[in-house]
Simulated assay, not measured.
Amino acid sequence: MSKSLNIALLQTELFWEQPEKNRIHISNAIKELRPEVDLLLLPEMFTTGFTMSPENIDAIEGSRTLDWMRELATAKQLAISGSIVFNEKGKYYNRLFFVEPSKVSIYDKRHTFTLAGESDVYTAGKAKTIIDFKGFKICPLICYDLRFPVWSRNVEHYDLLIYVANWPKTRINAWDVLLKARAIENMSYCIGVNRIGIDKIGHEYPGHSAVYDALGKEVLFSNKPEICYVTLDKKHIKTTRRKLKFLEDQDKFNLEE
């Protein structure tokens, strides 16, 4: 069991609805990725930007991107995660893949963003995904999920909560505050990976990718295009929860559709 986890966050601009161009761009951006990295995190819809026209994306592109992720994971011996537009049997999903060299886990975005019409074109997910990776239990979520604390409530005793996002500048204060809040209330590391730049419909994204520890202390913050690196310490989680047994006092509840 690993005592630490080395993570890289790619905060980058994206090319609108151009999966192949984005795959090439990301491949080039991570050529000099540090060899000790265990997990590479990419933004939400990293092959297209936050498009509400998934019909513009060839249905085969989802499989192509998944194959590319598998090849990258195998070549660099790491895990890679981010969400993409995925067409499955004629239904569109904002689907996160967590790809290891010999295993693939998925999570479909639960809270589709009604303000942008995402709920009209993408099928919402129904289940959380908890991933065991190198001694860490990881809960990956997507963007708008951040606003709904019940969905992220740490009933599984995960160690790391991840949000991949296209979160705009106009509401970035909420992003900053809620990431920190999710870390504190769940007594886990919390990572947010946002994109940067301006998309085709004029939305500006300022980055603000960040990492918070289980006490809400800022470990990392960035507002420029770059690869950010962070090492998470499993001892921090164990020591904090042993000393402050707040999770033992949380309310019991069941989610209903």
Rank of each mutant, 00 (worst) to 15 (best):
S222M: 06
S83P: 00
D145M: 02
L14T: 11
D108H: 04
S63E: 15
N56M: 11
K126F: 08
D120V: 11
K180N: 05
T129W: 02
K126E: 11
I57F: 03
Y212E: 03
I84A: 01
N56E: 14
F136Q: 01
L40M: 06
M1Q: 09
Y92D: 01
K245R: 11
I26D: 04
S4P: 01
N28V: 12
K234D: 03
L161T: 00
I138D: 01
L78V: 06
K252L: 11
P225I: 11
M52R: 10
N94I: 13
N194L: 02
I24Q: 09
P101R: 10
G82P: 00
R64C: 07
S27R: 07
T129V: 07
K200M: 10
K224F: 15
Y158W: 03
A8R: 01
V85Y: 01
P149Q: 13
S105T: 09
F221T: 06
H111S: 12
L14M: 07
K134W: 11
G117S: 09
S63H: 14
T240F: 10
R153V: 10
E20V: 15
V150N: 04
L141M: 10
F148D: 05
I196Y: 03
S63D: 15
P225C: 10
Q18S: 13
N94Q: 08
I24C: 04
S81I: 04
I191G: 00
S222L: 06
L115R: 12
V104T: 15
S81L: 05
E36V: 08
D120G: 07
L66K: 02
L66G: 05
